[in-house]
C-alpha cells in the first residue's frame, strides 16, 4: 500500500462513475427511440453493474492488509427488461394493428436523479484523490529546507 495505490483506487471509482454517466446519458438520449440498434422493438434502458475489486489486482506488493482494500469496476451493462409504455398513435410508422406504439422503458425522472447521484459520487472520488495528492505533497516537504 502506497499513495499511488490510493490514487488508483480513486481512479477506479472515477472511471466507474464516468461509465455510469455515459450509460445514463444514452438512456436519456434514447427516451423516444422506438427502434433499437439491433432492430428488435423499442430501445431498452441499460444499467451498469458495479463490482468490488481487490486493490492487490493493481498493487503487487506483499502487503497483507492491502489485499483487503477495494477498488471498483464496471462488471457489465445490464438491459432493463421492464416493458415500456404503449402509446396510442395510429399514424406512427411503428404502430401495431391496434394503433399502439411501444415506447422505450426510459423514465426521465429516474434517469435525471441517477445522473445527479452519479455526479455526487464522482465528486466524492475527486475529493479522495485530491486528499491523496495533498498527502503526497506533504510527504515531499520532509527533508526540504
Amino acid at each position: 500500500m502506497d499513495l499511488i495505490t490510493a490514487l488508483k483506487i480513486s481512479a477506479s471509482g472515477l472511471s466507474a462513475q464516468r461509465t455510469r454517466i455515459n450509460v445514463l446519458s444514452s438512456n436519456l438520449a434514447n427516451a423516444n427511440s422506438t427502434r433499437s440498434a439491433d432492430g428488435s422493438g423499442p430501445y431498452q434502458r441499460k444499467d451498469p453493474i458495479f463490482r468490488e475489486i481487490r486493490a492487490s489486482e493493481f498493487d503487487s506488493t506483499l502487503d497483507r492488509e492491502a489485499k483487503k482494500l477495494a477498488g471498483v469496476k464496471v462488471d457489465g451493462i445490464a438491459t432493463d427488461q421492464k416493458p415500456g409504455m404503449r402509446v396510442y398513435d395510429p399514424t406512427h410508422p411503428d404502430a401495431d394493428q391496434d394503433g399502439y406504439v411501444s415506447m422505450p422503458n426510459v423514465n426521465m425522472v429516474t434517469e435525471l436523479t441517477d445522473i445527479m447521484a452519479t455526479s455526487r459520487a464522482y465528486e466524492a472520488n475527486v475529493s479522495a484523490m485530491s486528499a491523496a495528492k495533498s498527502m503526497i505533497n506533504a510527504v515531499l516537504q520532509i527533508g526540504k529546507g
Partner: peptide, 24 residues
C-alpha cells in the same frame, strides 16, 4: 496511509451492491 486506502475504496464502492465498508 492505509486508512486512506480503505476510505478511498469505500468511496469508490459507495454504489456497489453488497459492498461493506472497511475500517482501519
Amino acid at each position: 496511509l492505509k486508512r486512506h486506502g480503505a476510505i478511498a475504496g469505500n468511496i469508490a464502492n459507495a454504489e456497489t451492491p453488497g459492498y461493506r465498508p472497511q475500517q482501519v
